[in-house]
C-alpha cells in the first residue's frame, strides 16, 4: 500500500472550476462542469468515474489538445504557476511532450500506423532536445528497453501493428516519458490488457515515478488499480469532482454517497461471487441537461436526509477540509459518519 501523502502548499497542477463544453446539434454537451482538484509533485493521483464522466476530456484539456476542436474550455488549469487555459499556443507547445505528457486510451489508434515505433519515440525526443538523429535513436532504444520491450534495437524498426496490446502501451509510455515530463497523464493505460500485463504496466508507472519524479494522473474506472497504485484519488461524476482524498482515507472513510456506491460496486475477493457487484442503479444524467442541483440526486439514496429538497434545487459546493480532502455533498459531516454503509 502506498503511503498516504498530504498535498503540500504548492501543487504542481491545480485545476479550478474547469469547464469543457462541446456545442453540438443537440445542444451544449457539458463534458466537464466545474471540476477542481490538485496534483502534488511526484504524486500519483487516480481519476475514477463511470464512462462518460469526463475523464479523458479533462486530460486533453490539460494538454491544451482541445484548442483545435470546437470545445469551449474555461476555468483555470494552473501548472507550476502558469495558467494553461490562457497560455499562448507557443508556450503550450513547449510544455507538451516536455513537461506534460499523455498516454492515450487506445494505443493502437494513438500510434501512427505508417511510422516505426522507434521513429515515433525518437521524434518525441527530438522536438524538445537539439540532438543528432543518432543520439535521439539511442535515447529511444534506451527508453524502449526501460519500459520492458525485448530486443529494443531490433524492435525499434517495427510498426505498431506488429506489437501486442501490452507492448504498444509500453511504446506509448516510452514515448510519453522520453523527455521526462513532470506530469504524466495516463488515460486508462491498462484497460484493454490482461491482468498480468496490467500489473506490469502499473508497476512500471510506479517505478518511473520513483526514477524520474514525475507526477502521474492515472485515469481509470478500476478502483482496484487505484488502491494498488495511487497516492490520492479524484472521484468524478458528470464532469465534476465529487470527492478528492488520500487513497487510504478514501477507502477507509469515503464521504460522498456516489463514492459509497462506487466502493459498493467494487469486486472484492473476500465476498461471495454472487453479491460481489452491486452497481449503482440508474444512469448518469445527460450531459446536455445536468440537473441544476446535485448531479447525483436522481440516483442518490440519501437525498431525503437533506432538508428542504436542497439536493434538487441547489448544487452542493466542493468543500475542502484544509487537509487535502474535498467533498461535494449537502450531507453534514455527522450525517456522513452515521449514514455511511459499513464495509462487511
Amino acid at each position: 500500500m502506498p503511503v498516504e501523502t498530504t498535498p503540500p502548499a504548492d501543487p504542481l497542477l491545480s485545476v479550478r472550476d474547469l469547464r469543457v463544453q462541446f456545442p453540438t446539434d443537440d445542444g451544449l454537451v457539458r463534458a466537464v462542469d466545474g471540476l477542481s482538484f490538485d496534483v502534488a509533485p511526484g504524486e500519483i493521483v487516480g481519476v475514477v468515474g463511470e464512462s462518460g464522466s469526463g475523464k479523458s476530456v479533462t486530460g486533453q484539456a490539460i494538454l491544451g489538445l482541445l484548442r483545435r476542436t470546437r470545445a469551449r474550455v474555461t476555468g483555470e488549469i494552473r501548472f507550476d504557476g502558469r495558467d494553461l487555459v490562457t497560455a499562448p499556443e507557443a508556450e503550450l507547445r513547449r510544455l507538451r511532450g516536455a513537461e506534460l505528457a499523455m498516454v492515450f486510451q487506445d494505443p493502437l489508434s494513438a500510434l501512427h500506423p505508417y511510422y516505426t515505433v522507434g521513429s515515433q519515440v525518437s521524434e518525441a525526443y527530438r522536438v524538445h532536445n537539439r540532438v543528432s538523429k543518432r543520439a535521439a535513436r539511442e535515447r529511444a532504444v534506451q527508453m524502449l528497453d526501460r519500459v520492458g520491450i525485448p530486443e529494443p534495437h531490433r524492435r525499434y524498426g517495427a510498426y505498431p501493428h506488429e506489437f501486442s496490446g501490452g507492448m504498444r502501451q509500453r511504446v506509448m509510455i516510452a514515448m510519453a516519458l522520453v523527455c521526462t515530463p513532470r506530469l504524466l497523464i495516463a488515460d486508462e493505460p491498462t484497460t484493454a490488457l490482461d491482468v498480468t500485463v496490467q500489473a506490469q504496466i502499473l508497476e512500471l508507472l510506479g517505478d518511473l515515478r520513483d526514477e524520474f519524479g514525475s507526477a502521474v494522473l492515472l485515469v481509470t474506472h478500476d478502483l482496484g488499480v487505484v488502491a494498488e497504485t495511487c497516492d490520492s484519488v479524484v472521484v468524478m461524476y458528470a464532469g465534476q469532482c465529487v470527492e478528492q482524498a488520500g487513497v487510504e482515507d478514501l477507502f477507509a472513510r469515503p464521504q460522498a454517497p456516489y463514492t459509497w456506491g462506487l466502493l459498493g460496486s467494487m469486486p472484492r475477493v473476500d465476498r461471495d461471487r454472487r453479491d460481489r457487484l452491486a452497481p449503482i442503479g440508474g444512469q448518469p444524467p445527460s450531459l446536455l441537461a445536468i440537473p441544476p442541483g446535485c448531479a447525483f440526486e436522481p440516483r442518490c439514496g440519501y437525498h431525503e436526509e437533506v432538508p428542504e429538497s436542497r439536493c434538487v434545487d441547489e448544487r452542493p459546493a466542493l468543500v475542502h477540509d484544509g487537509q487535502g480532502r474535498a467533498v461535494r455533498c449537502h450531507l453534514t459531516a455527522g450525517q456522513r459518519l452515521t449514514l455511511r454503509p459499513v464495509a462487511p
Partner: peptide, 26 residues
C-alpha cells in the same frame, strides 16, 4: 481528427510537422 494526429500534437510538434509529416503521410 485521428488519434495519432492528436498524439503528434501532444508531443509538442509544430503545426507544420503535424500536418506535413503525420497528416500528409496518411
Amino acid at each position: 481528427s485521428e488519434d495519432y494526429v492528436r498524439t503528434a500534437w501532444a508531443k509538442g510538434l509544430p503545426p507544420r510537422t503535424v500536418v506535413g509529416r503525420h497528416g500528409l503521410r496518411a
